[in-house]
Design a protein around this nucleic acid. Structure first.
Length: 260
DNA sequence: ATGGCCAATATGATTGGA
């Protein structure tokens, strides 16, 4: 079972890349973020023709998450619980049958939070609290669970090319990292870090200032695993070559293999 | 050259990204 996450920065702009990468990587489940379109504008037929079922939680212009799956969906949940007034499309959850087991996967687009001295940062931290509460409930099922997405969190100094440059950023502030630690401490495993301890492994490079050419990146796209999923983790990788394609997203896919 | 981008929006300056 191959599961991936990718912030595509507009699914309409990135459709050709997505179809090429699906054929190349052959994932079973894909979590997408930053669709930047409403449900009706999502290119469902093109993706279905590539062999995937589609669940979409879109929004006009911003945000938007989707899950693609070769298997049929048993259940789909749209939106993160905990705030009925939150209209931002940042969370989508699905359940699949894998043999006799249930596999639950969520596509997450955690708020950026910049600038940190504004209500945007408060929203980020509150969203993380809601995610912690919801994840706690899901972990109680004691099933394979993959919470995958663009977390907009640099977990440690090892995950950024120049920690000092990011010290005051909402993605790397101590409060942000502490909250992410609290989330992981529920019993979640960072799949990539469980497989690869090297420095210089990133999932995002800014479009500006030649960041890609200089490998000035950050690792902010994560697949977080329940113990039942971590037990069957076999491999994790970052498909960084996608960043060198023409007109790329600023994020690249992160991929794991589970023995399910 | 110590700076350089990109996408969406009643489409032209603004907003958001990270």
């Amino acid at each position: 079972m191959r599961i991936a996450t990718w912030n595509v920065n507009s699914v309409k702009q990135r459709l050709e890349h997505l179809l090429t990468w699906l054929k190349e990587a052959e994932p079973d489940v894909v979590c997408l973020q930053e669709l930047k379109c409403v449900d009706e504008a999502f290119p469902a037929s093109e993706i279905e023709s590539a062999g995937y079922n589609v669940a979409v939680h879109g929004q006009k212009a911003f945000n938007g998450v989707a899950i693609l799956s070769r298997r049929p969906f048993d259940e789909v949940r749209r939106g993160l619980p905990g705030d009925e007034a939150d209209v931002q499309a940042r969370y989508l959850e699905a359940v699949f049958s894998v043999g006799s087991r249930a596999l639950r996967v969520a596509s997450i687009y955690l708020p950026n939070g910049n600038p940190p001295d504004t209500e945007k940062y408060d929203y980020k931290l509150a969203w993380m609290d809601r995610l912690i509460a919801h994840a706690g409930g899901l972990l109680a099922f004691e099933e394979p669970l993959v919470l995958a997405g663009d977390y907009n969190v640099i977990p440690t100094a090892r995950d950024v090319h120049d920690p000092a440059l990011w010290a005051g950023d909402a993605l790397f502030l101590p409060r942000t990292r502490a909250k992410f630690q609290e989330f992981a401490a529920l019993g979640l495993t960072d799949a990539f870090r469980a497989c690869d301890g090297r420095e210089g492994q990133y999932s995002f490079w800014d479009y500006q200032a030649g960041a890609w050419q200089k490998n000035n990146g950050i690792r902010i796209d994560h697949l977080m695993l329940s113990p039942e999923a971590a037990d069957v983790l076999r491999a994790a990788r970052i498909d960084k070559h996608v960043r060198s394609w023409e007109k790329p997203s600023d994020h690249v896919p992160v991929v794991i293999d589970l023995a399910l």
